[in-house]
Design a protein around this nucleic acid. Sequence first.
DNA 1: ACACCGGGTGTACGTTGTACACGGTTCTAG
DNA 2: CTAGAACCGTGTACAACGTACACCCGGTGT
Lengths: 249, 249
Amino acid sequence: MKSDRDRSVRLLWEPPAEPTRGPKAALSQSRVVEAAIKVADAEGVEALTMRRVAETLGFTTMSLYRHVPGKSELLDLMVDAVWGETEHTPRGPWRAGLEFFARQMWAMYRAHPWMLQLTASRRMPGPQAMTRQDAAYAVVSELGLATEEIVAVATAVSHFVVGVGRTMADRVQAERETGVSEEDWWNGREALWEHFTPDRLPMMTHIWNSGGFERMLDDFEFGLARVLDGLAVFIETEDRPLVRPQTCL
Amino acid sequence: MKSDRDRSVRLLWEPPAEPTRGPKAALSQSRVVEAAIKVADAEGVEALTMRRVAETLGFTTMSLYRHVPGKSELLDLMVDAVWGETEHTPRGPWRAGLEFFARQMWAMYRAHPWMLQLTASRRMPGPQAMTRQDAAYAVVSELGLATEEIVAVATAVSHFVVGVGRTMADRVQAERETGVSEEDWWNGREALWEHFTPDRLPMMTHIWNSGGFERMLDDFEFGLARVLDGLAVFIETEDRPLVRPQTCL
DNA sequence: ACACCGGGTGTACGTTGTACACGGTTCTAG
DNA sequence: CTAGAACCGTGTACAACGTACACCCGGTGT
């Protein structure tokens, strides 16, 4: 139990040592991870099967287990590898920095929507993800905030991006699964629209009739600007009330 | 294909008609949904099996399929039933209203963290969820905003709550799976902490050493206040730039 | 020369969602 | 009042999943 998890730590944080004995490996951990990412990108997280990954590599299913302890650990490795594709937030003014960080995350989630669908129960943090986090903290660290406030500010941005990202990820997956674009799909749901009557959903029908759903704003751009505005208000305030957690769930 | 989805619509939006023939049903759709919610609450989304639900009800697995077309539709019904437990946002000033809406969502996700783990590819929206949304829009509708701005404002709040919610949901699931509390678990990861060195992760170690991770602020409370502040800035601005989506993904 | 370590394979098991056929029950049509 | 249709619950069966285990064989150290 404990050693299982410590093995995961080594897997992520320590470069795999080359074995001195035995035959040359035709496969490697990074090739497995790479192939898995490619499968998830192209066919979605539900198609990410050990069998499918092995197939794209031209090996048998069980050969993967020589390079990766199991599927859960493979997911850990995939996540950290994708974080590795993002750029570190450069030092500079806090607002530009946090915006950069948010855009990096957003680009990452758009390229790999499955990142947001891994149920991620206690996923082990990897070095790539951690250094990106560290750079984000650094950019907020010169404002004279308490360290717990630094964390809170950076985390607020992350939470927002994760929220928009999930909605986006669901849509992408749905489009792949059904092969129908978002718009076409909803247009095909007359049976649903029949129930959108003014007495049941007054605002929805009003927004619909005035075309508000056709001219939608960009959720990410709009929300990000608002979040940063809100953080600016906080940062520029003189005496900030500290909001401590009341319940420890 | 098409009729499948229309059946889902009927399932959610039209009350199930009592059959006139055949034996009295010992089971019912609502009992199945109720039992499924109870299983997911108590044992997590990964334990939500058709077999497990049937077992708690004291029936065979296949009997469920008389009341629910399949697992995917059961999930639709569960989601909408949970939305039904929340209160409608009452009319009133926008900020109080959006805060109320956010707190309702937050309470919902805390009570049923699995809501955030359903991969939710194109989940059919149900009436309960939609009326809650409608009430949230209503509270923002008297500020003279364009209808697309009303949507954007309410959606920004939702996205944030979803973001914090996911982090919380992952933690809850992990605690159930391992039976170890969040704090204990991380404390047991010495193998991980060894890699948190000042040269690799300067900010992290600094925050750690100054106790910033022990005095963490409440992510939900802190972030919500910032988001609402940011929206206030937007709402009180005279001429607002409209941010249109550039890319349609 | 030989033991051994490690890479790749093949088979097999338990668990999942659910298709399908069946037998019993109750209302409706004639 | 009876035949038949509609419907409920059950049991068996199947494909796909992650992966434990036993196996063979190639290359390196002693």
